[in-house]
Simulated assay, not measured.
Amino acid sequence: MTAHPDTPGAAPDLPPPRSEVGFIGWARKHLFSTWYNSLLTILLAYALIQTLAPFLDWSVINARFLGTSEADCTRGAACWVFVSQRLNFFIYGFYPDAETWRVNIVFAIIAVCFVPQMIPRFPGRRILLALGFTVLPVAGFILIYGGIFGLPVVATNKWGGLMLTLVLAYSGMVASLPIGILLALGRRSKMPAIRGLSVAFIELWRGVPLITVFFMASVMIPLFLPQGVTFDKLLRVFIGMSCFWGAYMAEIVRGGLQAISPGQYEAADALGLGYWKKMILIILPQALKTVIPGIVNTLIALFKDTTLVLIIGLFDILGTIQSTISDPAWGDVTTEAYLFVAAIFFVFTFGLSLYSRNLERKLRAGAGDE
């Protein structure tokens, strides 16, 4: 028997061997556990070195980041000068320069509401999250569009760049989840009329490509409006995107509802809870917890599909980049331009994925404590 460490005269426990802990231990366990794993690790490391070394040389070491024109770039290396020269256009599109402070305030509010969600022990995280989904949409629209409090109106046809991408993605996320929840509940309703309408809505929107929805919103809807009646293009795109992704969200939420055991429904009924109290307090929290990965996956797809608005004449971040590519003053910066866009989308989508993993980990820990 091993003596208890608090026992008088007992020998202290020895630390584990250095080869079993830290980076060395991790590498031995995951990279060099067998001869074939070691061989694969060496081959992959060689391939990465052969690929990354020329790329880093082109994109960082010999690249030019500062300057005023293509003449300041080095031939055979990346030219990032166009990013610094066109940065305002990439962020704000055609938004008036004198009013960009309004967009910057909205960006700051978004950061204040959502960045703390990545920090588990940040005080007031839930309050900030609630404000981000309730107050922020209204305050953000007032700031960006204007028309009240002395703010001049900036028409939506001047919105563009990263600002437009974030507006579409954020508003689509805020709207699609409630729509999906209501449709999922409607599809499981015992009332044939509500169930039939929900099924028809879901299958209709899931049965057409998103680009078709955008074309319909941009071209076809104005043909059915009365003479002289106009409908903002951006609002049409927002409605189409929300309905489209709401239909996909509905099927994800329905999967979570079906995963809840019948005993939960019976227990809620035994407590005398009405339908909405039962769903809001008992069923939906459990169902949404189950389908967090599917919800986040759909939100990531929504964020990336905002680039499709370029086809109907809205200049999101990809549209501003493509206009720069076609500018003969910058020569061939196609590779740099698309790498820049890819980096922006990666940062935002990885942030969503990271928050999803943190939330899942927290909920699993809470379930374990119970």
Rank of each mutant, 00 (worst) to 15 (best):
I109L: 15
Y92F: 11
V154D: 03
T34Y: 07
L162T: 01
F214C: 03
I42C: 13
Q258M: 14
H30V: 04
C243E: 01
G256Y: 05
A287M: 09
A367C: 02
L52P: 07
W35D: 14
L273E: 10
D57I: 06
I91H: 01
F122G: 03
Y265L: 09
G263R: 05
V229H: 06
G146D: 07
F23S: 08
I282C: 13
V112N: 04
I282G: 04
L143K: 04
G351F: 11
A184W: 07
E251K: 07
A63E: 01
S69F: 08
R121H: 11
W26I: 10
K29E: 10
E70K: 13
T156G: 03
L136T: 11
T7E: 12
R236D: 13
G25P: 08
T324R: 00
F141L: 14
F141W: 15
P15T: 07
H30Y: 05
P120T: 13
P54M: 09
S176E: 12
P120F: 09
I239E: 07
T100H: 01
I311M: 09
A217G: 08
A11W: 04
H30K: 02
L271W: 11
M173C: 09
D232F: 00
I105P: 05
G76S: 01
G319E: 00
I42F: 14
G124R: 02
L310T: 00
K362P: 04
N358A: 14
T212F: 15
F315A: 01
A47D: 04
R188L: 11
Q85L: 05
V135T: 02
A10M: 04
L44M: 14
F348L: 04
G331Y: 03
I110G: 06
V213E: 02
S33P: 08
A139L: 15
G313I: 11
P116S: 03
G228L: 09
P5Q: 04
I321D: 00
R102Q: 12
A267M: 09
W276D: 07
Q286Y: 04
Q85E: 08
P116Q: 04
D13L: 15
I61V: 14
L43V: 13
L44G: 10
R102Y: 12
A365D: 01
G207M: 11
L339N: 12
Q258F: 11
L352E: 10
P120S: 12
S189A: 07
A337R: 00
C113R: 02
I280C: 08
A184K: 06
S356W: 08
W35H: 12
L14G: 03
P137Y: 05
G22H: 05
I321R: 00
L136H: 07
F133D: 11
L185K: 10
S19Q: 06
T156H: 07
G22W: 07
V347Q: 07
G25F: 06
P5S: 05
W276R: 06
S38E: 03
G93D: 05
L314W: 00
Y145H: 15
R125D: 03
I105E: 09
L162W: 02
R206I: 14
T334G: 01
L128Q: 03
A78P: 01
L271C: 11
A63R: 01
L204M: 15
R64Y: 09
G67E: 06
G319S: 00
G196V: 13
